[in-house]
Simulated assay, not measured.
Amino acid sequence: MKQYLLLIFCLTAFLNLGAQDYKKKPIISKVTATWCPNCGSWGWDYMEALKDEFNNGDAILLGVHHSGDLENPVSDWFAKNLKNSYQPQFFVNNGQISVGSNNWPGKVDEIRDMVDMVSGMDAASAFNFDVAYVDNDNTIQSSVNIAPLNKSEGDYYFAVYIYENNVVNFQSQQGSNAMHPFVLRDVISENYWGDSFTMGTSSMDFSFDLSNTNWNKDNVGLLAIMWEKEGNDYIVDNSISINNIGLLSSTKNILDANDFRIITENDVIEIITGQSDTYNVALFSTQGQMLQKTELNGRVQMNAQDLPTGLYVVLIENEKGQLSQRIFVK
């Protein structure tokens, strides 16, 4: 078995790969507040529907708290940059979706159409996480490779943001233990909009000390955005995200993939091992949501009948190590 090194070899199991060909990866932002009744009623239901719709990773979901006890200076700036004026409001990149209590069920298809349209557009930038993990000192370490811009003009800024998924916190209409998805926490820069980016190929390194936070590092993810500045506004050119980087931080061994078979057919995910050990198995969406968990003793099956078609991540672990594998469910 191999040890985790600076290059986390299972990184791609959680990586949303969408920027390499200069095609845009859209961000769906929910501007919200914990005290807001509508944010916890129809706004909550709409966000849950969007999580199901984009479980395949076609878009990045983000919870932007511009007020309440999950607000922070970065989320406040982010909301203002989107021209937020009330809550809840939903945006695809910088474009607002007109949605309310009476029409939100029909707006899932509308936002799908908007995401598909944006995804077909060419971006000026293309980039990818090369490394992203939490080290033994509880510090995020990340490196991003950025291809040359394919536009000769423009004022561009690059930023890496930190979000935390499944934050347990009060939410009006949901109670004290609501589980907030993809909460924007901070930015790894002195500026909310990141740092100025010039034309050439670049590799940029980022680090952030988690020691002074109470965030669950296993649920922490990174969102990279290339902004194009137009006047005083910052417009999303492209983005990419990686979920659950704390799961990539362990000093545990990587289990040998040859010891496991994962079969997806007939609405069942079957995991088989010839090893005599007992393993914990968890199934995640590409957005980092844990969908199922079970134990593996030789052979186990997970029900895939109600899962939307798309990519998922199986995490297998015990006291000896862990292994993550991407699977496709039809």
Score class of each variant (00 low, 15 high):
D109Y: 12
T198W: 05
R112A: 10
S142K: 00
N128F: 03
G231D: 08
K24I: 12
T286F: 14
Q3N: 13
P73A: 06
L184F: 06
A282Q: 12
D137M: 06
D116V: 04
L82V: 04
N145P: 01
P181C: 08
G231V: 02
K151I: 02
R112K: 11
M47K: 09
D137V: 00
F170I: 01
D306F: 08
G120V: 00
A178D: 08
D205V: 02
D205S: 09
G43Y: 11
V134K: 02
L296I: 05
L255G: 01
G194Y: 07
G100Q: 09
W42D: 03
M302W: 04
N103D: 15
F91K: 01
P26D: 05
N166V: 05
A49L: 12
N102G: 07
Q275T: 14
L223M: 08
Q287Y: 13
M290F: 04
T264W: 09
T198I: 02
N103I: 12
G298A: 05
Y133S: 03
Q275E: 13
K25V: 15
Q325G: 00
N38P: 01
N84Q: 12
G231T: 03
R261E: 15
N318C: 04
K229L: 07
N136H: 14
D195R: 06
N136V: 05
S85Q: 07
T278N: 13
N177G: 02
N102Q: 11
S125W: 04
L70I: 03
D205T: 01
A224V: 04
T264E: 15
Y46C: 01
N94I: 03
K217Y: 08
S211P: 00
D186F: 07
M290R: 15
D45F: 04
L291W: 10
Q171Y: 02
A178K: 09
L184I: 02
M199C: 00
S196C: 01
M1I: 06
D76H: 12
F129L: 02
G100L: 01
A124I: 01
E190P: 00
G154M: 03
L11H: 13
L248E: 04
D76S: 13
S250I: 08
F328K: 13
W227Q: 04
I262S: 07
D113H: 14
D113E: 14
T294I: 11
E228W: 08
D45E: 14
W77A: 12
L248D: 04
N169K: 12
W227R: 06
D130I: 01
V220I: 14
I240S: 13
S285C: 01
Y133H: 09
S152T: 15
L11K: 09
E270I: 13
N56A: 12
Y46M: 06
W77F: 15
A282P: 03
